[in-house]
Nucleic acid binder design. Structure first.
Lengths: 127, 127
DNA sequence: ATAGTTTTGCAACTCAGTTGCATTAAATTA
DNA sequence: TAATTTAATGCAACTGAGTTGCAAAACTAT
């Protein structure tokens, strides 16, 4: 499993997530480390950290890929981050929601994961 | 409002959806009309039909854009197609689900829409 | 230090989706 | 039904997120 070396690139990315516990799109992350780190590396570091269970990914609107820190209890073995996400259509910010949404069982289907994205206006943009 | 001309391109696309009431990705649609219609036209026709309330769109896994025929009652004024979708991770097929999923209200947020995508194995791929 | 891997940077690529513009085809009017 | 207006189409070139191959650099262990 844990074949993630603690390289400069890895700590740079982790620092970003630790400095501000907020979901970020890959595009934004690449922007944040511009000049310091190559975009290919960003993609690869994120991949590895997700496999390690340190961060989790999901698709925002427009199909862009986003990442956020995992809740406690995630590991490379199992991801518990099946929570819904909310994205503001004005400022584009994403929030991880700790809602427990119950989806009725589907007959004759094996459901592995549930992606829920709510769109609307966040608190700041509402007022 | 109804500024959609009934062109050959429009009827070609509509025929595809009527021949088989099944969600289709744009990529697949372009493939289906290859040689007959330009891909730009496909995108534009789909855009217009969605605005008219004839079809609705959503993002499949991998962020690809998908379209499916609308339920009765949709129009350019309001789309009622907020139903969840199920996508098979083996054969990639998508099904529109007529489940009613209740999402708890979010404080201080204005929620406009809810995108739900379930991933797993469909009936055919389960057995 | 040395050897063996993993990581990184870079450049080139893929592929979904978009744009500008000239041409064509609907719909409208006379 | 021919002329006119306006929307729709085709084409080519572009954009931008994400990927790939490979050589060079940086970890880790011996």
């Amino acid at each position: 499993m844990g074949i993630v070396r603690k390289t400069k690139a890895v700590t740079t990315v982790l620092n970003i997530f630790e400095a501000q516990n907020e979901a970020k799109s890959v595009v934004r992350l690449i922007e944040l480390v511009k000049g310091v780190m190559n975009k290919t590396t960003v993609y690869r570091v994120l991949d590895r950290l997700e496999q390690e269970g340190v961060i989790h990914s999901f698709n925002g609107r427009d199909g862009l890929k986003w990442y956020a820190k995992c809740d406690e209890g995630c590991s490379s073995h199992k991801h518990l981050d099946s929570h819904p996400h909310f994205q503001c259509t004005e400022c584009d910010k994403v929030e991880c929601l700790s809602l427990d949404v119950k989806i009725p069982k589907l007959k004759n289907h094996k459901v592995d994961s549930t992606d829920i994205l709510l769109l609307g206006q966040c608190e700041a943009c509402c007022s």
